[in-house]
């Protein structure tokens, strides 16, 4: 049993009886992110799966204050909260923006880049479920090659996923971390750390989505774990530009025993039309990224 399980904040900020889907990877991740962020936090969200999780007026499933904003405006909304809190002398509140990959990689990127360049003192969290899941699984720039979505129904996605982490790295921000619901304690620890750091912090969570990715809800943690085991998603931290592997990715990097991508691909219906060529390109893409990380870790 994980000994550090007992250090986790016991308070639940995401209440039961909410509207998230069965086995939602976001719901699991959000539960621990909120436990780590705890009191004295203000959230801001664009229209996304979290809007649904937060619930319909006049009731909400989340006990942390939250301002809903428009799709493109998440990071600017956070910047406004920070400015308003500073202007009214409430400087000890942490402002946290949560957006999906659409609200981060695609529509939200301009405001995010602006806020990061200004060094806005906030945490931006991208929960990456690799598509527009709230509208029923359409292609985003975070969708991996070979995945079926409702807007790539026959040919599957023909391009690779955008490397948002590299884009954020290029902004020279205070803290970047990746997390996964397969490792809730690692996720929790990184959010606790992010809350303590000043400046712009960017967190990306790999969030499996049972209906969007096409696997049974019971397998969410398994799929999330396989994403790490195959290296398609890598757990790391960058503090002031200094890269280090964390958790399971760290031991994979040390032992060199990553699983082949097919172990991850074959369990998801979204990849059922992936061609041999695409699979090999995707494996190569994953290997190249992994090697980039190994180089970064060497310093």
């Amino acid at each position: 049993m994980p000994e550090n399980l007992f250090k986790i904040n016991k308070e639940e900020y995401m209440l039961p009886g909410n509207r998230s889907c069965q086995g939602c990877g976001l719901s699991l991740s959000y539960r621990y992110a909120l436990k780590a962020l705890r009191e004295n936090t203000i959230l801001t969200l664009p229209a996304c799966c979290l809007t649904v999780l937060h619930g319909l007026y006049p009731t909400t499933s989340v006990t942390i204050p939250c301002l809903n904003c428009t799709f493109a405006s998440t990071a600017a909304s956070a910047a406004g909260l920070v400015a308003g809190l500073n202007a009214t002398g409430k400087t000890d509140t942490t402002v946290v923006a949560f957006a999906g990959d659409g609200g981060t990689f695609d529509m939200g990127i301009q405001a995010l880049s602006g806020a990061a360049e200004r060094g806005t003192d906030f945490i931006f969290v991208c929960y990456d479920n690799e598509g527009y899941m709230n509208t029923g699984t359409q292609r985003s720039s975070a969708t991996p090659m070979g995945a079926i979505t409702t807007t790539t129904p026959i040919l599957t996605k023909e391009q690779h996923k955008k490397d948002m982490l590299k884009i954020m790295e290029a902004h020279d921000i205070a803290y970047i971390a990746t997390t996964s619901p397969a490792y809730p304690i690692d996720l929790y620890d990184k959010f606790v750390k992010a809350k303590r750091i000043k400046g712009t912090r960017y967190m990306q969570i790999c969030v499996p989505c049972p209906p969007g990715w096409g696997y049974p809800p019971r397998d969410t943690v398994k799929i999330a774990r396989l994403a790490i085991e195959t290296g398609v998603f890598v757990l790391f931290e960058m503090e002031n530009g200094k890269f280090r592997f964390t958790g399971r990715s760290k031991s994979l990097a040390e032992k060199g025993n990553r699983l082949p991508l097919i172990n991850y691909i074959e369990r998801q219906d979204r990849f059922k039309k992936i061609s041999e060529e695409q699979l090999s390109l995707l494996q190569k893409f994953t290997d190249n990224k992994w090697n980039e990380y190994l180089k970064k870790a060497e310093g």
């Binding site: 209440l15 039961p16 009886g17 909410n18 619930g55 007026y57 006049p58 009731t59 909400t60 499933s61």
Partner: peptide
């Protein structure tokens, strides 16, 4: 529109 927290928002 501002919601207040409660268990069982979706029933």
């Amino acid at each position: 529109a501002m919601s207040t927290p409660a268990i069982g928002e979706a029933g």
